[in-house]
């Protein structure tokens, strides 16, 4: 057995083990810690599966931001109170889940191996304006999906606005928080700009950059920047909505210019993609920040 296979096996076991811990520990903080660890190991396994773009997004969003959301919820929901299910119910659920898992694995193992898309993507890549195939798929070949995805983000933001959960007011975290933020925030802004720009030819892009920027925003919030200032909150909301607006306008403009929705004019695809991605980066960062900090007038820790 080669070392690479051993590494894969250990990684897969680690992911399964951490996920099992996250879903069974009774201590709230422990489950969230196990969940974030799962996210980081999963990011590593995306790298092993040849998907560095997804790995970047998973590390920033799946492990980082989702973990922050869960920690907020753990604090607010209090300790776990649910009763364990009846043994018969647990056994039936375990049996059902195991059968489904086995069926999925069997289907996977017996499915034909060849995939249809890579040759097509490779053939069209030259005209897409970018050389990173994932960015080409996201912002050119299937840009319509991405437009709807941004719409989903806006819908979630509207729902959070309506529910107005209490705002996050962090405890005083000690003397080192502000120096930490002073270093981390500028670096995060630079990293986000780099990810956005290199997304055209290497792993990266608007989602990863937006997530890193949102992380910088959370560092600011935890460092004591008050997001409850009305002006700041309105500006962030406007920024969050601007992404969808810019993307929709770009779709309509491309329809007017080329006759195809989100079909960019020949030779200018890269400029269009960079413009849309730039707007999306800021908008995604603002949306993710607002989804975490909340809107409500009441405040809670």
């Amino acid at each position: 057995m080669s070392p690479v296979v051993l590494f894969d096996a250990a990684l897969a076991l680690g992911v399964l083990g951490c996920a099992a811990l996250a879903l069974t520990l009774r201590d709230r903080t422990g489950t969230v810690a196990a969940f974030m660890l799962t996210g980081l190991l999963v990011a590593l396994s995306w790298l092993r599966l040849g998907a560095p773009d997804v790995a970047l997004a998973e590390a920033a969003i799946g492990a980082g931001l989702t973990g922050a959301l869960f920690l907020r919820g753990a604090r607010r929901l209090g300790p776990l109170r649910a009763r364990p299910p009846a043994p018969a119910q647990a056994a039936a659920a375990a049996l059902g889940a195991a059968v489904l898992s086995a069926a999925l694995l069997w289907a996977f193992a017996t499915a034909p191996a060849e995939s249809l898309y890579p040759p097509r993507v490779a053939a069209a890549l030259e005209d897409s304006g970018v050389s990173n195939p994932v960015t080409a798929v996201l912002l050119n070949f299937r840009a319509w999906d991405t437009l709807l995805e941004i719409a989903v983000l806006v819908v979630a933001l509207l729902l959070v606005m309506t529910l107005s959960p209490p705002r996050v007011i962090p405890d005083k975290l000690g003397a080192l928080v502000q120096p930490f933020a002073r270093i981390v925030v500028p670096v995060a802004v630079l990293v986000a700009g780099h990810l956005l720009w290199q997304g055209a030819e290497a792993p990266g892009g608007a989602f990863q950059a937006g997530a890193v920027l949102a992380g910088a925003g959370l560092a600011l919030v935890l460092g004591g920047v008050r997001v409850d200032r009305r002006v700041l909150r309105r500006a962030l909301t406007a920024l969050a909505l601007a992404g969808l607006a810019v993307f929709t306008l770009a779709a309509l403009a491309s329809q007017a210019v080329t006759g195809a929705l989100l079909g960019y004019p020949d030779g200018q695809a890269k400029a269009w993609i960079i413009a849309i991605e730039g707007a999306l980066t800021l908008s995604i960062a603002a949306t993710l920040c607002l989804l975490f900090t909340g809107y409500g007038r009441r405040s809670a820790r």
């Binding site: 998907a51 773009d53 997804v54 997004a57 998973e58 969003i61 799946g62 931001l65 989702t66 959301l69 869960f70 898309y117 890579p118 993507v121 195939p133 994932v134 080409a136 798929v137 996201l138 299937r142 999906d145 991405t146 995805e149 989903v152 983000l153 819908v155 979630a156 933001l157 729902l159 959070v160 989602f207 995604i284 949306t287 993710l288 989804l291 975490f292």
Partner: peptide, 20 residues
């Protein structure tokens, strides 16, 4: 790249769903 793009979309949608 196509499943990669799907998964990337899924991650972003999922964090929105989780927040909601």
């Amino acid at each position: 790249p196509v499943p990669q793009a799907f998964v990337l979309t899924g991650i972003v949608v999922l964090v929105a769903v989780t927040a909601a």
